[in-house]
Design a protein around this nucleic acid. Structure first.
Length: 738
DNA sequence: TTAATAGCCCTG
DNA sequence: AGGGCTATTAAC
């Protein structure tokens, strides 16, 4: 790791820029500059933000070409060597230009040429006059003022986040107190968190949890990946908390916790904040404003934040004291970046842990097959939590309903309807899980079987009856509902199949006494809609929840005892080899929603294939057995995790150039004499998307190294190809979607 | 990627 | 000649 050096007599700077070109650019510098510093440079006719990655005293570039730095951000903390080396590794591994990789890992504010200003926040306390004052001096009607005053008395110093919890109108109240001359203030780095709700209650750990904590703590300051395999409710979070406590206590070290999406961050964050109030904590996710993001990132970079909870991008956050990492729900697909540099945050985290020589814990109830494979072959330590730590509750009973053998009523089997009625009578809650939002997935002509297609995608338009339009869920295209079949002129067009809206409608009709709530992307678009809905469920204002996969994750509903699953069969025979793995993970997760407290749960799955091994494994909640059978399939097919894949994806207005470009790629790769298996260019599932014709080229190899060798030589050839600028293309190493 | 400019057809 | 368009090229 390179320490920042001063440029004394050296005056050539190697600057990385956010441009899709290999290599860095040389600039002249009049002033001393440090490696890791941000600068503004002239680049062609424009100005760009750059990062100084190296210093030199000579340049290969013609002296006349060399330009000077326009601006130095020399007041900012510099980027450290670990940041450079991790992104260098990723740029190489994922075939992405180094400069772009570096810049894309920075908060947006730092990619702009304007000086970056983080949000300034203050903390407040009572000065001696305030301490001497009495609350009776504040009129009773000034409730906010009184509350703030009382809180400052009780807690000493309060930051803005803490004050905001007291009242949304805290600024006014505080201004009034300041007016009285009672307040003292100081700039503070906010986001670090609140100690208002600190809790010192340490729940008792069960044996498995104790073993997990002890095992992991045996190997500090060593690269050691652990799979913490724990079913929903088995107490993984408590294990994380104990580990963080042990790792961070009594030092200045830092820990990074990766989470899949903002959706479940608030819960984890809240628990960490109450249980670990002694460690300043910041979050990094896309819901932050840019100034908050920059501030939190800086707190991480300077070491002020001891715990960082973040989504995939935060895996690159500079953390000088990083000693421990957690990747929660490590199987989650949102860890894979699907554009730009297509990195997998879990894999990058593993690389980072290895280079830093620190332990890393991957937690999941349904690990990715890659991770499971490594745990089974001993490369990762395997720790299992099988008991449900939350209570003495039992695992849910999983049953399949064979939909080919029963008379269905608008998508609902008699068994499922009956089960719903039973919960209604008992005053318990049910969840119906259906992965299709909208009213009906297709609009069908009964006479000629024409189906309303999307003009820009290879997909069907989904009927949104209430809003009165058809919508493509892939490109967002909307149009009025067609009244007459454009193919045969028939006016007999029917919304066919079940979506969340229709299911909601059906339930309201069949079970009029039930209070039905639909939770999908459409109904939760409003800012706090989801959390409002979830709390409505919690206080018992809802009997039946109808929802998409967004309900599968991380929400506990103690009174929920039935989960019905509709329409899963498409994933069972999907051409995507990971579809079944994902379905299994999803069903395990939904099953975990049922019967969390002392009430036993039931899961009813409607399927035409009740004997499918996936359901058999689900019935006994046996991840290991199902994983073993999947692994066997993958071995035969030579698919991951047994072998490794890379994909070149390309798209353009017409398929012709896409095909020619990919054929060139295939021919060149073969000409390079690679050991990788180079397939022929094919069209993906979704042949056309957003008006673009798509194609892809698959590479398969026994080792990552083999793929790396061929891609390293091939990518520059592709960049130089005449079609390179006419089509859109990208290399996807370890692709997740095909 | 961006943006300047080279080249080209067209009109007048 | 000059407008308006696309293709090409350079960027430290």
């Amino acid at each position: 790791m390179t320490e920042p050096r001063q440029a004394h007599r050296l005056h050539i700077l190697k600057v990385a820029l956010d441009v899709p070109l290999d290599g860095v650019f040389d600039y002249l510098s009049e002033a001393p500059v440090q490696i890791g510093q941000r600068v503004v440079v002239p680049f062609g006719p424009r100005r760009q933000v750059g990062i100084v990655v190296d210093l030199a005293d000579a340049s290969d570039v013609a002296p006349a070409k060399l330009k000077s730095i326009i601006q130095y951000f020399d007041q900012e903390p510099v980027l450290d060597g670990e940041f450079f080396s991790l992104l260098k590794f990723c740029a190489d591994y994922y075939q992405y230009p180094y400069g772009q990789a570096l810049l894309s890992a920075l908060p947006a504010r730092l990619r702009q040429t304007e000086p970056a200003r983080a949000r300034q926040q203050f903390c407040y306390w009572l000065n001696s006059a305030g301490q001497a004052a009495d609350i009776s001096a504040i009129p009773v009607r000034q409730a906010v003022q009184r509350r703030i005053f009382a809180a400052l008395r009780a807690h000493g110093r309060l930051n803005e986040a803490e004050l905001a919890e007291l009242s949304p109108g805290w600024r006014k109240g505080l201004a009034a107190l300041r007016e009285r001359g009672w307040i003292e203030e100081e700039q503070v780095y906010a986001g670090l968190g609140s100690t208002l709700h600190a809790s010192s209650v340490q729940p008792e750990l069960n044996e498995e949890q104790v073993l997990a904590v002890q095992s992991i703590l045996q190997y500090r300051d060593t690269f050691r990946p652990w799979l913490l395999h724990g079913i929903t409710g088995s107490g993984k979070t408590e294990v994380y908390i104990r580990l963080l406590q042990a790792v961070l206590e009594g030092n200045q070290d830092q820990a990074l916790v990766l989470v899949p999406e903002i959706n479940l961050t608030p819960q984890l964050e809240a628990r960490f904040r109450t249980r670990l109030p002694q460690f300043p904590l910041v979050t990094l996710h896309s819901n932050l404003s840019e100034s908050e993001r920059l501030q939190n990132w800086r707190l991480a970079q300077t070491g002020a934040a001891r715990i960082v909870i973040g989504t995939r991008l935060s895996v690159f956050t500079p953390l000088p004291g990083l000693k421990f990492m957690i990747v929660d729900e490590e199987h989650d697909t949102s860890y894979k970046q699907q554009d730009g540099m297509r990195y997998h945050a879990r894999d990058v985290a593993l690389v980072r842990a290895q280079r830093r020589n620190i332990p890393i814990v991957l937690g999941s109830a349904t690990p990715a097959l890659e991770t499971w494979h490594n745990a089974r072959n001993g490369r990762y330590g395997l720790l299992t939590l099988q008991q449900r730590a939350v209570s003495q509750s039992q695992l849910p009973q999983v049953n399949c309903v064979d939909v080919s053998r029963v008379q269905m009523q608008e998508g609902l089997s008699p068994q499922l309807l009956k089960a719903l009625k039973v919960r209604l009578e008992r005053g318990e809650q049910s969840l119906l899980f259906i992965n299709r939002r909208g009213y009906a997935p297709v609009l069908l002509c009964n006479a000629c079987h024409w189906i309303a297609p999307c003009m820009r995608c290879s997909s069907r338009l989904v009927v949104h009856l209430r809003q009165g339009f058809l919508r493509c869920h892939h490109c967002g295209h909307e149009q009025n509902i067609v009244r007459q079949c454009p193919s045969c002129g028939n006016a007999d067009l029917h919304p066919t199949g079940n979506g969340t809206q229709r299911l909601e409608e059906t339930l309201t009709r069949l079970l009029p006494e039930a209070r039905v709530l639909r939770v999908d992307r459409d109904s939760t678009r409003r800012k706090h809609a989801l959390s409002e809905m979830l709390s409505a469920v919690h206080v018992g204002e809802v009997d039946i929840l109808v929802g998409t996969q967004m309900l599968a994750k991380g929400h506990d509903f103690p009174n929920l005892t039935l989960v019905g699953v509709l329409d899963t069969d498409s994933a069972l025979f999907s051409p995507d080899f990971r579809a079944a793995e994902r379905l299994f993970a999803q069903l395990m997760q939904v099953a975990g929603r049922a019967g969390r407290a002392d009430k036993p749960g039931e899961v009813l799955i409607q399927t035409s294939f009740p004997e499918h091994q996936l359901f058999n494994a689900l019935r006994v909640q046996d991840f290991a057995a199902y994983a073993a059978s999947l692994l066997q399939e993958r071995e035969v097919a030579q698919f991951p995790p047994c072998e490794f894949l890379a994909l070149i994806k390309a798209e353009a207005n017409e398929y012709g150039p896409v095909q020619r470009f990919l054929q060139f790629a295939a021919d060149s790769a073969r000409a390079l004499g690679t050991d990788a298996l180079v397939y022929d260019p094919v069209r993906p599932q979704m042949e056309r998307l957003k008006g673009m014709e798509r194609g892809q080229l698959l590479f398969q190899a026994a080792t990552r190294q083999t793929l790396q060798i061929v891609l390293r030589q091939l990518t520059p050839q592709l960049r130089a190809h005449p079609l390179s600028n006419k089509i859109r293309w990208a290399v996807d190493v370890d692709p997740q979607e095909f």
